Amino acid sequence: MKLLGLHHVSILTGKAERNFQFYTKVLGLRLVKKTVNQDNTESYHLFYGDAKGSPGTEITFFDIPGLGHTYPGVGSISSTSLRVRDTNALHYWEERFKQFRIQHDSIEKRNNRDSLEFQDFEGTRLILVADNGEQGVRPGVPWGGSDVPVEHAILGLGPVTLTVAVPEKTISVLTEIMGFTKVGSYPPLAGDFPAIQVFATGEGGAGAEVHIETRPELPRVRAGRGSVHHVAFRVPNEEEYEYWAERIATSGLMNSGKVERYYFKALYFREPNHILFELSTDTPGFDVDEPIETLGETLALPPFLEPRRKEIEEKLRPLDLDI
């Protein structure tokens, strides 16, 4: 059984309102679920994705007001990629970033793909990558509800980069336990550092890759606002989820055991360089409790939290989003 690719990436934000403005009004993503952190219901959890909230398109944020600065380093998910249709889209985004005064680099080749690196207002390192007809995991459905033309819209997640001091144990988990295959390598864009190694699962392509950057000279990351909390990988259904839960349980890796998130079933574990991985099912999806037409418009709670709605809403800070 193979993992299908990336499911979602979850990041920390200190300012949910500005986060919403950036990811919907600047990047043109759809808010597909406004809910709470199920492990701390006094905190919001916002999910952005494609028109349907498809697995593999979601970038999510835990809202933690007052969160401190991030100090980058090893043991981190140091960049998250977002897919667009082609290089023409990258040129559109280059001009849009200038218009909104978004910090960005120039268009460059990265693993033989045209790419455009930029940062959000909290310093989260993001990279747009152009599909240009590449085969592999299918892209998502472009969201037509923003002023970004659909032909240039963000279509889902691309590769994540893991920055580690000692790559061998992380690679062992990816290949021997999770079924990834090494598919190549490429030189870093700057500096005399080891080649970045590329691993893929499922049908491959941008939506199924993990890149390993080796940087033994760096200190350990100190997470804060803009840090990536974890990356999740796609399990197609509950039957295969049971297989993976057993596989991780017998691997010797410390793990959460099976976790019911309602919108998907999850399982969490840390690989040897302390990066948090999650396995998440594609089913049932974000439209299990809201029509696709109105995703993200109200505070959604899973059934096991619904009896506590009044208590939860009273403890949540007001969140004024211009939806």
Rank of each mutant, 00 (worst) to 15 (best):
H91Y: 15
A153Q: 05
N111L: 08
V160H: 00
D131V: 08
I177V: 15
S146R: 14
R138L: 12
P187A: 09
F180A: 05
E94K: 01
V129N: 03
Q135C: 04
S115P: 15
V148P: 02
L90M: 09
K109H: 14
A130N: 10
E108R: 06
D192Y: 06
T163L: 01
G205M: 12
K109C: 09
V141H: 12
A153E: 07
P139F: 07
G204I: 12
P142F: 14
T181W: 05
T181R: 15
E95Q: 10
D131N: 13
F180W: 08
D131G: 12
A200S: 14
Y186D: 12
N132S: 12
V141P: 11
A165C: 04
L128Y: 04
E168M: 00
V141E: 11
Y92K: 01
F199G: 05
G191F: 07
V148H: 01
W143P: 11
V129K: 00
S185G: 13
T175D: 05
V183R: 08
V141K: 10
H104L: 12
G207Q: 11
F193A: 08
T163H: 01
L157Q: 10
L155A: 05
L174Q: 06
L162K: 01
T181Q: 15
S146Q: 07
D147P: 09
F118P: 11
W93I: 03
K109L: 12
Q135Y: 13
F100K: 09
V141N: 06
T124F: 13
K182A: 08
A195S: 00
E95S: 09
Q197Y: 02
H91E: 10
E117L: 13
G204N: 14
